[in-house]
Simulated scan of single mutants.
Amino acid sequence: MAKLRRRVEDNLWPVVQQAVAAALSWWIADDLIDHHVPLFAPIATLVALNTPLGGRGTNTVRVLVGVISGVVVGQLAFTLLGHGAVTVGVAVLCALLVALVLDGRRITMAQAAVGAVICVAAGQQAGVDRVLDALIGGAVALVFSQLLFPVHPLALLRKAESTTLSGLADALGLTAREMDAGDEERTSRTWDEVRTVYTLLDELG
């Protein structure tokens, strides 16, 4: 229960930010721009902000790069080959390769592939709408991550350090208790704790 409470407390504020930002993206696309179905604007915002606090701005740029490159590739494939399974396969392959060259991150590649599929499946206007939605969602995500709620690097580092040290202390304490216990009393909890420390060290890095 303590770990659950700590997890909720650590992530509640970013989750609230994502919800408000998604609603704002929808409102901008639906009311201000009068988008027909502003579906992808809040989705782009959520994907961009759904990453650790230190990387939300970079993640937003990756989403935009992936969407735009995927739409361009999908549009070319649709123009040259029309609809069909072969066109989807070619568009996705080319979009993934372009994203791999541009960035190589999974989020960029996924967004590029999705953009290409949407273009082939729904035509040119859908691709244009997807780019517009991505720009709206990305702009909202950047405003939230860089202007309204920027990350303070030193505070983020101190938090990661204290969390890692706490995890190391827990793992060492459990290891000491396990070593004092008899063979029949030992459990597999020690390895579970150590695996958690690996995750904390990765986040600290």
Rank of each mutant, 00 (worst) to 15 (best):
A44F: 14
P52D: 12
V131A: 06
A48E: 10
Q18N: 05
A48W: 10
E184D: 12
V143K: 00
L96Q: 06
H35K: 00
R62E: 09
V143Q: 02
L165K: 06
L142V: 12
H83I: 12
V101W: 07
D129H: 09
A176R: 12
T190L: 11
A2K: 11
M1L: 03
H36P: 10
V120C: 14
L49S: 05
A77R: 09
P38N: 05
A121L: 15
L24E: 08
A126F: 08
A19C: 05
F149R: 10
A181W: 00
D103G: 06
Q146K: 14
A19R: 01
W26N: 09
L97R: 04
F40A: 00
A113R: 13
R5M: 04
V114H: 04
V73Y: 00
A160L: 12
A23C: 14
F144T: 09
V143R: 03
D180C: 07
Y198K: 10
Q146G: 11
L81M: 15
S166N: 13
W26M: 07
A181D: 09
V98T: 12
V37C: 02
F144M: 14
G66L: 10
R62H: 14
R106S: 05
V140K: 10
F149A: 02
S69G: 14
A19T: 08
L132M: 11
A121Q: 15
V37L: 08
L4G: 01
D10G: 02
E203Q: 07
T196Y: 00
A181E: 13
D10F: 04
D202K: 15
R6D: 10
W27K: 00
L168N: 06
D31W: 04
L135S: 02
I28S: 03
A21G: 07
D170P: 05
Q111W: 13
Q125L: 12
V101A: 12
T199A: 08
H35Y: 06
D129N: 12
V61A: 12
W26E: 05
W13C: 03
S166L: 13
T187H: 02
T199C: 04
G82H: 14
A21I: 03
L100D: 03
G127Q: 08
V131T: 01
R195C: 02
L53I: 10
M1W: 05
G104K: 12
G123W: 13
Q124E: 10
T79G: 15
R106D: 02
A112V: 11
S69M: 07
S166Q: 15
G182Q: 07
L96K: 08
G205K: 06
C119V: 14
D133V: 01
L46D: 08
F149K: 07
T199G: 09
L154R: 15
E193R: 08
Q18K: 01
T164F: 13
